[in-house]
Design a protein around this nucleic acid. Structure first.
Lengths: 186, 186
DNA sequence: AAAACAATATACCAGTCGGTATATTACTTG
DNA sequence: CAAGTAATATACCGACTGGTATATTGTTTT
C-alpha cells in the first residue's frame, strides 16, 4: 500500500477515534511513518485530507445507494432495498460510516462539519426521493415525506451505528422496518 | 450575573458552536472578559468546565424527567408525558440540549465524550425504565424494550434537535408519537 | 543528456494549546 | 487589628498547532 492510501486509512481511524479537531497532522504522519510535507503533497490541507477520505470511500457507495433506492412501484420493497444497501455499506466500512454519521446531530459551524454535511445530504436526498416518488403513486403521506425521511434515517442510522459489524444485523433490520411501518403495537 | 455564570454561558455557546475541542480556554475567557486563572479558580480544568455546564443545567431536568416518565399504568399516557417533558426541557435550554445530543452518535474516546455520555445515559435509563415497567404489566414487547428505547430516543431527539425553539413543536410531536405507535401506514 | 516533475525529508515559522507560579486586592473570620 | 481566604490579573511554561521554505532524490519527458 502506498503512502497516500496509508495516510487515508490512518487519518480515518484517528478522526473516528478522537474527532477531527482532536487529531494533529503530526500524529497522523507518525502513525504512517512519513513526514508532514508528504501529507501536504497529496491532500493540500488537513481539510483536504478529510474530504478525500469521504470522497474516495463514498463516491461508489452513493451511486449504489441511488440505484437501490429507486422506487420500483412497491414502497415496502424499495425501502427494504435501501435499508439493506445501507447495511451492506456500513458493514464493508464501519469506521467510515461511524465517522460520517457522527456529524448528523452536530451541525457545528466547523469546516469539518461542513464537509461531512455535504455527503450526508446526498444520503438524505436519496432517501427523501424514495418517499416522494412513493407518494406520487400512493398519495397518502400528507406532505410528511420530509419528517418520514428524518425519522427513518434517525432510526436506521442509530441502529447501524450501534451494531457496527454484528452478524445478525439483518434480522434486527427486518424488525426495525416492520416497526417503522406498523409501529411498536404489533 | 457573576463571572462564574458568565463563563458557563459563554462556554456553552462556544462549545455548541465549534465543538469542545475547537474552543480554547483563552477564547472563552476573552468572550467574558476575565483571565484564565479566574476560570481555573472556579472549574479546575477545561473538562471541569464542561462537566459543570451539564451538571448545573441538567440536574433538575433529570429529576423532572424521572418524575414525568414514571409508569402510571397507561403506556401511551406515560410516553406522552415523557415526550412533552423532553420537549419542554429543550425549549428552555435549546443550546444545552443541542450540545448534549450531539454526543449521541459520536462515542469517541475523548474525555469530553465520556462526560457527555454520563448524562446521556441517565436520559436513556429513564426512557428504558418506562418501557420495562410498561412491559411488566403488559408483557408484549418480546424483550425488545432496549431497541424500542433506542428508536424512540433517536426519533424524538432528532426531531427536537431539528425544531429547536419552533412554536408548533407540540403538534409535530403528536404526529411523531402516533407514528411510533402505529407506523407510517396510518 | 537536459529539463521537468513527483515524492520525500529536515528544519523551521508564528500562533495557540491547557495549565500555573506569583502577586494583588478585597472581604471575612478569629 | 491580624490572619486567612476568595477572586482576580500579569506573565510565563513547554508542548503542540497547521503549514511552509528549502533541499534531495529518483523518475519521466523532451
Amino acid at each position: 500500500m502506498e503512502n497516500k492510501e496509508k495516510l487515508l486509512n490512518a487519518a480515518l481511524s484517528l478522526f473516528d477515534e478522537k474527532g477531527y479537531q482532536g487529531v494533529g497532522i503530526q500524529e497522523i504522519c507518525n502513525a504512517v511513518g512519513v513526514s508532514k510535507p508528504t501529507m501536504y503533497h497529496y491532500f493540500g490541507s488537513k481539510l483536504g485530507l478529510l474530504d478525500s477520505i469521504f470522497k474516495t470511500n463514498l463516491t461508489e457507495d452513493i451511486k449504489y445507494l441511488e440505484r437501490e433506492a429507486s422506487y420500483n412501484g412497491d414502497f415496502v420493497n424499495s425501502i427494504q432495498k435501501l435499508t439493506f444497501a445501507l447495511s451492506e455499506c456500513t458493514s464493508k466500512n464501519p469506521v467510515l460510516y461511524h465517522l460520517l454519521f457522527s456529524y448528523i446531530l452536530s451541525s457545528k459551524k466547523n469546516e469539518d462539519s461542513e464537509v461531512a454535511q455535504k455527503y450526508l445530504n446526498k444520503i438524505y436526498e436519496i432517501t427523501l426521493n424514495l418517499f416522494i416518488k412513493s407518494k406520487e403513486q400512493n398519495g397518502n403521506m400528507n406532505n410528511r415525506e420530509s419528517q418520514f425521511t428524518y425519522s427513518y434515517l434517525a432510526v436506521v442510522v442509530d441502529y447501524l451505528n450501534r451494531h457496527g459489524m454484528d452478524e445478525n444485523k439483518e434480522q434486527g433490520l427486518y424488525g426495525l422496518l416492520h416497526q417503522f411501518q406498523f409501529g411498536i403495537n404489533s
